[in-house]
Simulated scan of single mutants.
Amino acid sequence: MNEGQPSRTALSAAAARAAHPLVDDRPLIFTDPLAPRLLGGLADEMIGYHRSNGGHIILAGTRTVTTVRSRYAEARAGAFGQYAILGAGLDTYAFRAPAGRRVFEADHPATQEWKRGLLDAAGIPVPEHASLVPVDFEAPDGPVRPLAAAGLDTARPALVSWLGVAYFLTRDAVAGTLAEIGRLAPGTELVMDYALPPGLRDADGDAYAEIAARVVRDSGEPSRTWFAPDEVNALLKDHGFDVVENLTLERAVPPRAWRRTDALRPFDYFRLVRAVVTGRPVTG
């Protein structure tokens, strides 16, 4: 994000989650009841875009990817006593999670300060089981040290989600973060999304990517990195993970989620991968 400026991508993702139950037909893919409150005075305007232009490929596509990836990640949270959300943006899981499950939100310091202001304005308290941890993913020391300082028990398995972030970082920064996560306790699970390069997307994915590239570039948050699925699998293996599944949006949720009469359709630009830290020494 630009220093001192709200992240447009974080706002767009929160607006898409807030708009989904208001704009789209049933079955709902995912519900985030706190998203409209967190948007505060921006909620009517941003949700209004979805109400009036909900079939536009960018708006419908953003509702699709944000709801699918949130549902996919949160479905894994119940298996772990601690959950680290890297690049949390305006995610609200920490404020909906059951008591007793530690949740750590890691994001850019400016994003965290901005989010605290939105939480205060919305009257949403930060619960005792939640910690907002400032992290710079481009910094050489990575996210694990500040997470551990905030209370993440690195000797116990955790769920780590890293969604809507990797494509805005350099390849070196992605690899560095994966190396850090790969040194966490064996059994730690990572849920991550990534963007496909040209030639591997479907037609709708190409159309979404072309428009989205202009939007995020103009907002000062340009996409930087794309991966083929085999590249992601190899990178994870190199940093101490076993890949459990590497999925299209279509396959990341039950088939009944796509029995739809609205504008939401699975498109192939973003993929979701789930991998487990093995604890085996990394060679090479």
Rank of each mutant, 00 (worst) to 15 (best):
G164C: 06
P27G: 07
D206M: 13
G117K: 13
H129E: 11
V65I: 12
G100K: 05
L86K: 04
L159K: 04
D218N: 14
L152E: 03
T225Y: 12
L34D: 00
S7C: 06
G164K: 09
D172P: 01
P33D: 08
V273F: 01
A213C: 09
F267K: 02
R260L: 00
Y83V: 15
A84N: 02
R101E: 07
Y72I: 01
V160W: 03
W114T: 06
R156L: 11
A88F: 06
I211W: 06
D242K: 00
W114L: 07
V215A: 05
A149R: 14
P36V: 15
A122Y: 03
R256E: 14
A212K: 08
N53Y: 11
R37K: 13
D230E: 15
R101N: 11
A16D: 02
L152A: 09
A121W: 10
S223C: 11
I85L: 14
D268F: 00
A60G: 03
L247T: 02
A43W: 01
G187N: 11
Y167C: 05
S223Y: 10
K237P: 00
W162S: 04
E189L: 08
F30I: 12
P127F: 12
G279Y: 04
P157V: 14
Q112R: 08
P98T: 15
E128I: 11
M192T: 01
A35I: 08
G151V: 07
R224S: 07
R102D: 14
V160C: 05
G100A: 12
E105V: 06
E74D: 02
A175C: 13
S219V: 12
